[in-house]
Design a protein around this nucleic acid. Structure first.
Length: 118
DNA sequence: ACATTGACTCGCG
DNA sequence: GCGCGAGCCAATG
């Protein structure tokens, strides 16, 4: 092994991937929230970069990652957008006009919401 | 070394 | 809802 990680994974990327991997099925989280949980507050953009680098082969639940306002980060209608929407709906997450109700499906949602569900 | 670009976020008007 | 500016910072040219 030569050097270290010029283009490979560094500590931050690993921490971020780990957080993303732990988002429960049927729940979603924002880029900023993920960054914060990875110990990197205000580094939402890094989360996006990690996901882009990772690609589909990384086996990460990238579709559970949304913008802070609950919207899908991709442009409505494009390929990635439709794929993400389909995956979310497939695991029971409600998507209305490219929007997800974070109070209901957010990883850090209010517990009371769940109680009122059934 | 400098400028631009983003799977981002927040505050203000 | 929309646009702007600022903060953020690794990658890219």
């Amino acid at each position: 092994m030569s050097k270290s990680v010029a283009t490979d994974s560094n500590k931050d990327h690993g921490a971020i991937r780990k957080v993303i991997a732990s988002i429960p099925r049927g729940r979603v989280a924002s880029y900023g929230e993920i960054a914060a949980r990875a110990g990197l507050p205000r580094r939402a953009r890094l989360v996006g970069r990690v996901l882009r680098d990772a690609g589909d082969a990384a086996k990460l639940p990238w579709h559970r990652v949304l913008r802070a306002d609950g919207r899908i980060a991709f442009a409505p209608g494009n390929r990635a957008f439709r794929e993400q929407r389909a995956r979310l709906i497939d695991e029971g997450v409600g998507v209305k006009a490219g929007r997800i109700d974070l109070a209901r499906y957010g990883w850090q949602r209010n517990i009371d919401e769940e109680i009122w569900r059934l």
